[in-house]
Structures are given as structure tokens and as C-alpha cells.
Design a protein around this nucleic acid. Structure first.
Lengths: 149, 149
DNA sequence: GTCGTGAATGCAACTGAGTCGCAACTGATG
DNA sequence: CATCAGTTGCGACTCAGTTGCATTCACGAC
């Protein structure tokens, strides 16, 4: 349950010579345990439930750190939920975000096509992908079934 | 060269019962003739070269209209060039944006994998894609060649 | 052509995400 | 435990994007 128990994020930080402060540990924990995608405001709110003194600027600075370190991915989820950015822990399996504007649901989908795409980009363009973001907008199964009957 | 000559955007608007005002015609023309991707501020600046009285609010309202009408796609280009959104005319061929943080170049890449992806999403999830956005971050050919020698 | 009307515009004030400078504090290291 | 560069909290700031409202305009009816 704690980040230090799971290890990787905190370890990755200290490996990069980044100081592990109380605030960073807390933010990592919140990100790790979040059920869905969080934006900066939600991350701040959640963190303040544990440490009410943590500041907005710290959240932004930490997110920036995690982004450039490749530990967290920044998404906007097709602006289905708002204009802000959302953040998620970077995982090993690349995945696609599916957003349905009708019900507002964001789901995830894993497919080898993501890997194939980065390979094709490398083969045909000589472009070495370090990160890939795929967001699909459309009508989810539940909504299309509800529409038909 | 003019939007009305090319037709589709302006036509598509009037088909939807959307009034074709002087300002909208101008914005469509600018978008159509733009060499790369424009953000709202750049679009405003470019439009003001022709009509100095056009307002920021009109630009945002028009972009919103074009987005929801599916005539324009909104991108953030992995925030390589800034935190704002960028806009491009929606075309028939789906394409992928390749962004290189080292040189700041955004290039485009067409591949059947985009179509395959939307088909796989439909087959495996029952999700009917209406729009798809793929942004790849990585090292472009020029930069990796420059690095090696 | 001109008229009437609802839609669109310009303007100015506002909201809220994200940034920055700085003084106070603190985690890692010896 | 002393040191100090890196980090935090704070408050002020920037700027993208929105909104309410009075004025203007596109466009169909006549």
C-alpha cells in the first residue's frame, strides 16, 4: 500500500538523485493509490487530507519532476472532464484511452498495435519513440446499446 | 485559395445552419492556409492582420463551434511548443503527430495502423470511434543522426 | 431592396490553471 | 550535529479561456 513498499517510484527518484521529501512521498502515494486519473487540483485536495499544509506550487513542481523523469504521463483525456491535465503513473504496458462524451466515461484498452506503431514509426521515419499517447473519442458499448434499445 | 473556393468548411457550416459571418469566414481562411499548427493566440494574431477588430472571444467561440462540429481537431502536441491547445483542419486521412523535444519539431505520419486501431477497439470493446488522436514523443531522425556523428 | 429578428460580435470584467521570487526550512551527507 | 544545496510555503503574478451584456449583422420573408 505504501509507495516505499511498492518501491519503484520512490526508488526511481532517489536513483536520479532527487531528494525524497515528506511532500513528494505523500504525492507519490496518492498518485499510486488513486482509483482513476487525477488532475493537479484533485491531487492537491487528496494530499491535503493527509497533510493540510501542502501547497499548490509543490504539487505542480513535483508533477513536472515526475513528467520529465518519465515516471508519470500527462493526459488531457480529450477534455471530456474539463480543460485541465490529468496524470497517471507510467506503466509497462502501453494503453489507449477511450473516452465517451455521452456518458463521460474514460476506459483503458491494451493492444499490441501501440508497440507496432512505435516500430513502424522507427522503421519508416527513423523516429525513436520514448512515449506515446493515444486517445480515442467515441460511443462506448453501453451508450450504443442504450440508444438502440 | 479562398475557403469559399475550396468549399468544404464554409459549406459544412451553412449545411449545419450556422451563419457564415465575416469573422468566421476569415478564421476558416486563416486555418486553411496556415502552414503548421496554430494555437488560439496565433490564430487571433493572423486574423487581425486582415481584420484588426476581431476579438479573442470570437476566436474561442468559433473554435468551439468547429471542434464540436468535427471540422477541426484540437491537439496539445505533447506541450513541446507551449501549454496551449493547437488546432488543425480535420482531414480524411488519419495521421499521427511525432514530436521531438530536442529540436521542437512536430511532424506527421500516416499509417493504416490508425484505422486498424479503431477497428480493434470496435471489435474487442464495442466502442465506435468518432475521433482518434495519437501523439508520439521521441527523438527524430535528424537529432539521432546528429548525436551519433 | 428593406425589414425584422435571432444569432453573432466586441468589449470588459472575470475565473482559474499554472508560474515565480523569495525567505524559511529540511533531507542527505560527512 | 553541522552544513548547505535543494525544497517548501506563501503571496503575487501571468495568461488562456469564459461570460454577460449592449450593439451589430446575416439572412430569410416580404
Amino acid at each position: 500500500m505504501s509507495v516505499t513498499a511498492r518501491g519503484s517510484l520512490a526508488e526511481a527518484l532517489s536513483l536520479r538523485g532527487i531528494r525524497l521529501t515528506r511532500q513528494r512521498r505523500l504525492l507519490l502515494e496518492v498518485l499510486d493509490n488513486a482509483p482513476g486519473h487525477l488532475n493537479a487540483r484533485e491531487l492537491l485536495q487528496a494530499a491535503r487530507r493527509t497533510d493540510p499544509t501542502i501547497d499548490r506550487a509543490t504539487v505542480y513542481r513535483t508533477l513536472h519532476l515526475l513528467k520529465t523523469g518519465g515516471l508519470v504521463d500527462e493526459l488531457d483525456l480529450l477534455h471530456l472532464e474539463g480543460e485541465e491535465h490529468y496524470y497517471e503513473r507510467r506503466r509497462t504496458g502501453d494503453h489507449v484511452h477511450l473516452g465517451c462524451p455521452q456518458c463521460g466515461t474514460i476506459s483503458e484498452f491494451e493492444t499490441d498495435l501501440v508497440l507496432e506503431l512505435s516500430q513502424e514509426v522507427a522503421r519508416r521515419e527513423g523516429f525513436t519513440a520514448t512515449g506515446i499517447r493515444i486517445e480515442v473519442r467515441g460511443i462506448c458499448k453501453a451508450c450504443s446499446e442504450a440508444q438502440v434499445g
